[in-house]
Design a binder for these strands. Structure first.
Lengths: 390, 390
DNA sequence: TTTGAAACTGTGCACGGGCACAGAAAAATT
DNA sequence: AATTTTTCTGTGCCCGTGCACAGTTTCAAA
């Protein structure tokens, strides 16, 4: 009883304070509409409005109608800041990407993801990375299992293995974990698929073709070169090749011919060297080379050794090794698939879905930047820009 | 006395509440460090910690030392979300840019600014635009005066007039209003200059030169063409020309010669036509044209009429008129100076300064994107991406 | 010593929204 | 009509930070 009376005194005290601030409500006319404003307009309490907003039920049809009308009329927009604070909830995102031991490319989406996470810290968003060994399906499955057991709120995946990828995503569906794909597209049709963020491989092949075409003289040849194992299982590379070929079929003014080549083991320098030498002996008129992966840098020294420095070179990705040759003006163009942004937007889209309840566009292609010695510096500094964004 | 006793009862009551939640403090070990955590560690109240954090003085050296040590040890990072909510303050930004009646270019930074503002609404940031007529110094001054009288928290300016620009910025200094420059750089040395965000005009000229050079055959000529009034007062254009010339001086392998030309009144179609015709009669070997402004589209139909369709064309900016000719494969390259991003980052940097107290980099050059028929679609869709960012 | 100003410190409401809980009203059951 | 059950509604604490204000201590001057 004593405690109760204390309680009432407390209430009284706080009530006087509330009435003291009532004048403020009148002076915030032009300010943002709050839940309490809707409640007043509809003649109910903020709790009831909240129940309508979050569809928590237990609201009479009459009240619901009045509240919806008030919301409509006042054009209520929830305050994300206040909402995030009140939720006081941690959102855990898991990422399933290849590690960057074999391919420095995979470092880049991670940079973007971490930038995004840094700016979302105060919203309670955290990220846990589960790397798998490039080319190791079993490891992919193992790491996937860890994620499925980890009670995550969302998953960001680069499903580079088709079969195992679908398998993992099906399990996500069962556990009702929404997922977002980056870099590699898989056709999915379920409510937990959020979005695909990546590059348009076909179009990047077309772009490479146009760039080389611009610098070719009539009758010259160009080579499309795959430096990767298992090319025929890699849709990416085949699409790039298709785009490249299609361009020259459509634009025959200069009568450019295409030579196709592939070499698996880039670490076997000797074999690679004699392979390349043979190609340019067989086709002495090749004046342009398009490498479909980020591994162009592996052949640059060989090209110099073979006295083929005037051949135009086009490849992918702003990794350091490639940039070195771009700086020396030996590589002519690098097509940037914006991997940093892929990671950044991947996390941001998950945030939009989880916290802001905004549904992302299902397919988001990032720009294919044409990077040359003369504009490369801006693409390298560009990363800095990202952490300025909140 | 009665009130006082109530007050004490109240205090006692609230204390029991605090002790009631003490268990919670133990269970939030791995959660974010708060002000109250520092206060406990330092053996003071949160008020004192707050005074140290905001340098509001009236703190004993001993307390200050203990708090700083605790902050260091716990690696305190303020919660921006909670801070923004508690501030409950409106931040008013003014923008002083040319209107887009004469030049659709100026529409683009505005799109970026509005995107930024939309995502910062809940932080209380608002934007008021003060457009001035392109080329009208007096109107610039008038609109500037309105801003100075408006009690703004920060200003975003494109100071295209040097004298009047400095004058306005000096007044901003007197009123202690921080300002950020976009598009046009002015050398400033005062504490209210936040940042310059724009393009590197010189380098864009170099880039244009390289692009044309790539498609030229030895001995051919290229033209650098200014389509703008008052070229010699426009540092932008002169810098572009300088970069263009410097490239060909450094790279003389193909022995490319430069023809310089300028025409003021683009709306005088007849005059422009005969001017162009004369140029190509005088220099029949011109195989590439570089227009230093966004007004390349004005001469495209004339080029067709004059039977000069095979000449390579390079210009600036992804405005609709230019994009139409890019789609038709008549313009070869457009250099994108990212005006949308200029606006977006301009507002974001001001937000960082005002709310997050992060000092921006003083000079931020945006990428010079090489846009062609084959990758243009991604640069147009790119704007969408911006509003995904929080 | 007393007084009073100055320096310092602690407390609690506010920001807007989420949600638990206590009540009230309505409906269903005895 | 009295009761239980169900449906509905209002109140107030909580999130972490900012800040006003009340309160305490220190220290010099009277």
């Amino acid at each position: 009883m004593l405690l109760l009376s204390r309680c009432y005194v407390f209430l009284f005290f706080s009530e006087t304070l509330i009435s003291h601030t009532k004048d403020q409500y009148l002076s915030r006319m032009n300010s943002r509409i709050r839940i309490i404003d809707i409640a007043k307009k509809a003649g109910v309490s903020k709790g009831t409005v909240d129940r309508v907003l979050h569809k928590r039920g237990n609201v009479s049809p009459i009240a619901k109608e009045k509240i919806k009308a008030a919301m409509e009329e006042l054009d209520y927009q929830p305050n994300v800041i206040a909402s995030a604070l009140a939720y006081n909830r941690r959102w855990r995102i898991a990422a399933l990407l290849p590690n960057h031991k074999n391919d420095p490319f995979w470092l880049q989406p991670k940079i973007g993801m971490e930038k995004a996470i840094r700016s979302l810290r105060d919203y309670g968003v955290s990220l846990e990375q589960f790397d798998f060994r490039d080319g190791d399906e079993v490891h992919f499955q193992e790491q996937g299992k860890k994620i499925l057991a980890g009670e995550f709120d969302a998953v960001l995946v680069a499903p580079i293995f088709s079969t195992e990828g679908h398998e993992f995503l099906n399990q996500c569906c069962e556990l009702k974990i929404p997922y977002l794909l980056i870099n590699t597209f898989l056709e999915r049709d379920d409510p937990f698929f959020l979005s695909y963020i990546g590059q348009d491989s076909y179009q990047s092949g077309v772009l490479a073709a146009k760039l080389l075409d611009f610098g070719m003289s009539p009758g010259e040849k160009v080579m499309v070169l795959h430096l990767e194992a298992d090319v025929y299982n890699s849709m990416h590379l085949l699409e790039k090749e298709r785009g490249f070929k299609d361009f020259f079929e459509k634009h025959q003014q200069k009568n450019i011919h295409i030579v196709k080549a592939a070499y698996e083991n880039i670490f076997d320098k000797k074999g690679l060297r004699s392979f390349l030498k043979q190609q340019f002996v067989d086709h002495p008129n090749i004046k342009g080379v398009f490498v479909t992966t980020s591994k162009l840098f592996h052949i640059m020294d060989l090209m110099s050794e073979l006295g083929l420095e005037e051949i135009k070179m086009v490849g992918f990705d702003l990794i350091e090794e490639n940039l070195d040759y771009l700086k020396q003006d030996k590589i002519n163009f690098l097509i940037n698939q914006n991997p940093v942004k892929q990671g950044f937007l991947g996390v941001m889209n998950i945030f939009n879905h989880l916290i802001l309840k905004k549904e992302p566009t299902k397919k988001q292609y990032l720009p294919l930047d044409v990077v040359m010695l003369e504009n490369m510096q801006y693409y390298i500094e560009k990363e800095e820009e990202l952490h300025l964004i909140i």
